[in-house]
């Protein structure tokens, strides 16, 4: 089953990291990449820019309202996500233990439908959970 691995952390903390600590965090992500790619469970990795770059689009009756900033103001921010394809939830839980936890937590949520495109080559990949 395809699982999303949603990474939450504090941007205050992220900004305060020293270059060495930053490297250490990247190393753990690197290990996660390596492991999930070697057992062929890796599907996608997405790192988001800071919430400071976000805008939120809303519709009020017939007007679209674009406000600056993320949708929700939270103590921990949504930083990025992986998609991994593992046989069971248990395997997914096992896999994420490789990720850095110094800066927050990881939410695992099964994917109901996934469609991806290699937009360079215009090939499409569809995974439907049903």
């Amino acid at each position: 089953m395809l699982f999303s691995v949603l990474i939450y952390g504090s941007e205050d903390f992220y900004d305060a990291l020293s270059p060495e600590e930053h490297q250490e965090i990247l190393k753990k992500h690197g290990a996660f990449h390596e492991r999930t790619k070697s057992d062929r469970s890796f599907a996608a990795a997405t790192k988001l820019m800071s919430t400071g770059t976000a805008v939120t689009v809303n519709r009020e009756s017939n007007d679209f309202i674009v406000t600056d900033g993320p949708f929700a103001e939270t103590k921990e921010q949504f930083m990025g996500f992986y998609l991994i394809d593992t046989a069971t939830l248990e395997d997914a839980i096992e896999a994420v233990k490789e990720l850095p936890f110094e800066n927050g937590r990881v939410e695992i949520r099964p994917v109901a439908y996934f469609e991806g495109a290699d937009f360079q080559n215009a090939e499409r990949l569809v995974i439907d959970a049903s």
């Binding site: 941007e11 205050d12 900004d15 800071s50 919430t51 400071g52 406000t67 600056d68 900033g69 993320p70």
Partner: peptide, 10 residues
């Protein structure tokens, strides 16, 4: 600056 942008996105 990042902290301020986070606090005052508007």
């Amino acid at each position: 600056a990042r902290l301020l942008v986070r606090l005052f996105p508007e």
